[in-house]
Simulated scan of single mutants.
Amino acid sequence: MDEAKDEDVKGALLPLSFDGGRYSQVGYPFDTASELSNYQKLLVEVAKQTWREANPDRQRLPRNFVQSLELRLTVVGKGSVLPYAVGGASASTQQLLDHFDRIRDIFAEIVQKGFLPSWLSIDARKAALRVGASLRTDERVFLNSRTKDRVEYTHADRALMVANEEARNTPQNGVLAGKAVEIDPDKQSFQIELSDGSKVHARFSKPDLWQTIHNFVSPSAEANVVRFHARYLQSAAGEVLVVEDVTDVEEFLESTSAWTPRLVELLKLKTGWLDGAGSAITLAAIEYSNAILSGLEQRGITGVRVYPTPQGGVQLEADKGDRYAELVISEDLVMEGYLSDSETDDEFSPQTPASAVDLITEALNG
């Protein structure tokens, strides 16, 4: 195919382009033609979703809606593969460009987060999954935009996203720590700000739970950290994607406590935080630490140092003069302590947070 000339591409659109591997040679490889078809299908589904969002009270799409979105290949430019196209006879160039921008943003989120945006419709999700299906490890597709930097999408990006989407289909029950920052009782939904700062959409099936959740709703900086008992979906990397149903909510960490910011820092640690090793800190170990720190403060012992352990537990350290106390709370709540002063060294194994407070207080106060 001849090199594209200025007059060939004048007025044409370039929603995506390809590079590397089979795309390094002149022309468009026939065995990857499905990529153009897949993009066309995604364009239609994104346009449908956009129209329905703007017209929530209308059920039927306008006449010739899909036909107006038809893209037709006009010429393939050299220097990677640049498939210039034009829209259908009734297509609005401005609307097409708007849809191209939104598709570009979809893939920007995929590349950044490793999974499809939660707001995508089911049909749009299916279409987005197909884009890049033919890419080899040395090939990439660029999603273009008229106003933003293009997004590079690779075989590795798609492989991670597909794995995450498969993981989404396996809900799990557990406890999540975070803050309730917004609530819509009519839709029985709210926003959770997780301990890592990310926000996820959450729903609750029991209507009477909204008042309990509402009691914890507060601006992020002021909100207490609470525990959400819930069914949720998470990515292959362990990132929470959406909370399908919250069944109970209970207070966990008070925002006014001096040690809460430090415990929240520990909650943010993910597997691999210690040079590729290090387990995530368990909620149980955080809860025990919170109870012990609260008890020590009531006894007048402050300034306790708090550290994570590689196994997923917490280590507390405190001193007073020549007296020193150390307590390790394991991920499964086994506690081992060490006490010392200028004359003696002792080990201890408290069974409860209350007994740990008693032993540490006695050791430091003499």
Rank of each mutant, 00 (worst) to 15 (best):
I360S: 10
D196H: 13
I292L: 13
F216Q: 10
H155T: 04
S355W: 07
E254G: 13
N215I: 01
D345R: 15
D8Q: 07
L69I: 04
L364K: 06
R158Y: 05
E326L: 15
H214P: 00
Q298L: 11
G77N: 10
R203M: 05
K10M: 01
P56G: 12
F204C: 04
A133T: 02
L14G: 03
A47Q: 04
L293N: 08
D245N: 15
Q40Y: 09
N173E: 08
W119R: 06
R150F: 06
S340Y: 01
D345A: 15
E362Q: 14
G79T: 15
G321P: 12
R125M: 11
P261W: 02
P350H: 09
D184Q: 06
E3R: 14
G87T: 09
L263W: 00
G312M: 05
S255G: 07
I329V: 12
L42Y: 11
A223Q: 00
P310W: 05
G303Q: 08
T93Y: 00
L120Y: 10
V46M: 13
K268Q: 15
L263R: 02
E165R: 05
F252I: 01
L82G: 09
Y84M: 07
L82K: 14
D105C: 07
G21Y: 00
K148D: 12
T137R: 14
L82M: 11
G27S: 07
M335E: 04
R63F: 06
G27M: 07
D8V: 08
E35L: 05
R125G: 12
A223T: 04
Q298V: 11
V240P: 03
R130H: 03
G272F: 03
G27T: 09
V181Q: 06
Y338E: 09
E165K: 07
T50Q: 12
P29S: 14
V357N: 12
K268T: 13
V242E: 15
L269Q: 06
N164S: 15
L263Q: 02
P261D: 00
V226S: 11
F18R: 11
V111Q: 10
D149R: 12
I213P: 01
T361G: 13
L253D: 01
K270S: 10
A230C: 10
V81I: 09
T271I: 02
S92G: 02
T32D: 11
R231E: 11
A127Y: 04
K41F: 09
V314L: 01
V304E: 00
I106F: 08
E109P: 02
R203S: 12
E182S: 12
D19I: 12
V46N: 03
K41N: 13
S145F: 07
V306K: 03
K113Y: 06
I292G: 08
D2C: 02
L61E: 08
L73Q: 07
D186F: 12
L241A: 08
V151W: 10
D319K: 15
E152A: 15
L283K: 00
R231S: 14
I301M: 08
A221V: 07
A33F: 07
G312Q: 05
S17H: 10
G197M: 10
P117L: 00
F100L: 10
G276E: 08
G77T: 10
S17W: 09
Q234H: 11
E244M: 07
L293V: 10
D319T: 11
Y232V: 01
V217Y: 02
S340R: 15
A280P: 04
T32F: 03
D157N: 15
G132S: 03
D245Y: 04
N224F: 02
A236R: 09
